[in-house]
């Protein structure tokens, strides 16, 4: 791929904490318009790797370089202290100066535009997750890092959000780094899969990764069949309140 398309790059990068390597020897890059997915068991260093990409963690070995400053992040866990009164509209603006149209547009995309003036503390887990995604895409970033973005979201919402992520990558032509346990989405949509377990076990396009013995060792035989997974298709869709729309 063209060199100018590279957004971020890790070269033999590693993070060392409390006398052990959390991850080590990680090398990959993310290009414009590309969806790269990190998969791996718990504690395999997926979030640590994402944080190196975002310059939240400094590398103790190797290098992390980025060619863009327009990065947006959907963290895995975020706790907002109750002592802070915060509405969705305030939260949307914490790192960007957005106008009201930009805010409502992106909230509409994730289906939570009605919550604009609600307190963050009153949102359900799934609603908050949608707000997090809306906030990240509102400023049209060059690189979007999503750490398990659909946790707590209901089944139909999950499909809609994954479709949205796909759409974002093509319309904004931004790079996406995704951490996900949803093998179906990973295998059907991702351009590049990286299988992590403290180091890179194997990587490549989805169809080659599932056949890799390292992958089968980590995830077991049954997961290689996810490509033939049965996908439930609705002939209608639901609004947020549960009513049916076509």
């Amino acid at each position: 791929m063209d060199k100018n398309n590279s957004l971020v790059k890790l070269e033999n990068a590693g993070v060392y904490r409390s006398s052990k390597w959390l991850v080590r020897g990680i090398s990959f890059e993310i290009n414009k318009g590309q969806i790269v997915t990190l998969i791996g068991p718990n504690g395999s260093g997926k979030t640590t790797t994402a944080k190196m990409i975002l310059n939240i963690l400094d590398t103790d070995e190797g290098m992390a370089t980025s060619n863009t400053s327009k990065m947006a992040y959907v963290p895995q866990k975020i706790n907002i202290d109750w002592t802070m009164p915060l509405r969705v509209i305030d939260f949307m603006k914490i790192t960007n100066n957005l106008n009201n149209t930009q805010i409502t547009d992106s909230l509409t995309m994730t289906g939570v535009d009605k919550l604009l003036y609600n307190q963050i503390h009153s949102l359900s887990g799934g609603e908050f997750q949608r707000v997090l995604i809306a906030r990240a895409i509102a400023k049209k970033p060059d690189l979007l890092v999503l750490d398990e973005p659909v946790q707590g979201v209901d089944f139909n919402g999950e499909i809609a959000l994954y479709n949205l992520i796909k759409k974002i990558s093509s319309t904004l032509n931004c790079g996406i780094l995704l951490i996900s346990h949803d093998m179906h989405f990973v295998m059907s949509t991702t351009d590049h899969v990286i299988c992590l377990n403290g180091h890179i076990c194997c990587s490549g396009n989805p169809s080659s990764v599932v056949k890799n013995p390292e992958y089968i060792k980590l995830f077991g035989e049954h997961n290689s069949e996810t490509l033939s997974y049965y996908q439930h298709q609705h002939d209608h869709s639901h609004n947020n309140d549960g009513s049916v729309s076509n």
């Binding site: 975002l54 939240i56 990065m71 907002i80 802070m84 790192t95 890092v145």
Partner: peptide
């Protein structure tokens, strides 16, 4: 204010997005 407020809401978000 913008930077300190963002860091108060969430350190990782603020760090990742150049605050």
């Amino acid at each position: 204010w913008k930077s300190i407020f963002a860091a108060t809401v969430n350190y990782d978000l603020a760090a990742a997005e150049g605050m």
